[in-house]
Design a binder for these strands. Sequence first.
DNA 1: GTCGATGTTATCAA
DNA 2: TTTGATAACATCGA
Length: 274
Amino acid sequence: MPELPEVETIVRGLRREVLGRRITTVRILRDDRLLPSGRELADGLLERSLLGARRLGKHFFLDLDDGAVLAGHLRMTGQLRVQAPTEPLLAHTHALFTLDDGRELRWRDVRRFGWLHYLPDGRVEDLPSVRALGPDALTIDPGEFSARLAAARRMLKPLLLAQNVVCGLGNIYADEVLWRARLHPRQRSDRLSSRRLRELHQAMREVLEAAIRARGTSIDGAYLDPDGFGGGYQTSLAVYGREGLPAPCCGRPVRRILVASRSTYFCPHCQRRR
DNA sequence: GTCGATGTTATCAA
DNA sequence: TTTGATAACATCGA
């Protein structure tokens, strides 16, 4: 669920809500997605203050006042909320961190694909899933983006989803980026001119920045920011989830196909393979 | 009740 | 090297 714009919105929300706060209580309701263990995570976080919140791709990192880091990934259904303790506890809430202003930072994940990892030394680059990441999609420069895609010799859709090439895009934004660049999802990356690769980079930047401005995409209310608000970008989607509906480019119906076993939405008329 | 699909990704096989 | 299938899990809709 949360891709780069959603994680960015969450991190900005956490900066506003919890920076400088001290963790006074840790409650673990279910520990099978906590590393290295729920006990070590709870012991490490207790009485620590939160000094920073940042992200790389879809990973997020909370910096503590002793140099430790709480790293995490929300995968499909993870949520981080800051709530009053009187707010009802929703099902699938797995960890709660009480802050010194009385509020609680709550981690919830219905499908339990996500995880939290406490790193006493703060060395996030030691995590294999972080080490494997390519440059962040929001900040990669056009030259490196083009070089990495041209070198890969693969179809564009799975390439944009490959976090070791460029990190942060998921299924929604990959389709939106390809639509904006008018490129076919099955177009091979090494057959594109450098001009088209730069256009693809530009499209990626524009889509991500617009989605961040809209505070992310919420479909079925699955994604919520720390304050409990959904995003607004779902009304700006051109093709994702819009099979059969008119594409904004030409009015012809959006088509859904499977590419690398992921649902892929595109306009067959305007996104031609070259 | 069953089946298929879901915004992620690690892993294994071909 | 690249791809496809599968698995982790819960929920929803047809």
